[in-house]
């Protein structure tokens, strides 16, 4: 089962977020507005306003931007920790971690783009899936998009429907998508 995907750029900004199979722990009505507003939004980096405005009743159900910051923090610290401990000085030292309810997969490109995917703990390594997303979907639909403004000092959220659609198709076709 695949839960969600975060893409962070070099400036530590989350430029893309999407989720699948994710049932929020709070009231069902909110869970519905969450998923529909996320899947149909044209600008992907739109957090469900309901989740932000009506503050969570369950402390675990964090408002979205906070959650991304936490994910980034965890990934960043673990990466540094691993590179400190390992003998070989490589940037792709950290691969994944697992808790009793989920597993986080990590892939970083040479240019500093970070792909983070959360799945259930039984899923084998999704590193190749993240690489595929980068090489065949991100490069094709975001990097090669001539209409995208390009300034390396700024970060641009991915607001490309093709990217989203192709990504959705690809993920839904994976054997581990809903098992």
């Amino acid at each position: 089962m695949i839960y969600n995907l975060y893409i962070f750029d070099r400036h530590c900004q989350c430029i893309f977020y999407t989720e699948w199979n994710r049932n929020r722990t709070t009231a069902g009505s909110r869970a519905q507005t969450d998923s529909s507003s996320l899947h149909e939004a044209t600008a992907p980096y739109v957090w469900p306003t309901a989740a932000v405005a009506g503050m969570p009743t369950d402390a675990r159900d964090l408002a979205m931007p906070d959650e991304t910051k936490l994910v980034y923090g965890v990934v960043f610290s673990l990466r540094n920790m691993v590179s400190k401990l390992s003998h070989t000085k490589e940037s792709d030292g950290f691969l994944s971690y697992r808790t009793n309810t989920y597993k986080l997969h990590y892939f970083e490109t040479a240019s500093g783009l970070k792909f983070v995917m959360l799945s259930d703990p039984t899923v084998p390594s999704l590193r190749d899936v993240l690489k595929q997303i980068y090489y065949h979907i991100y490069i094709e639909y975001v990097v090669k998009n001539a209409l995208l403004p390009h300034d390396p000092k700024l970060s641009y959220p991915i607001s490309n429907d093709y990217f989203r659609a192709v990504l959705n198709n690809y993920i839904k076709g994976l054997p581990c998508y809903q098992s």
Binding site: Y3, E19, T25, R60, L62, E67, S86, Y102
Partner: peptide, 22 residues
């Protein structure tokens, strides 16, 4: 923190970390 960012609600913290060399 890892127990807080769980997509499914209740989670314990990290229990296995996989890296390149260990």
């Amino acid at each position: 923190i890892t127990s807080r960012i769980s997509p499914t609600g209740n989670s314990d913290g990290l229990d296995l970390l996989e890296a390149d060399g260990f």
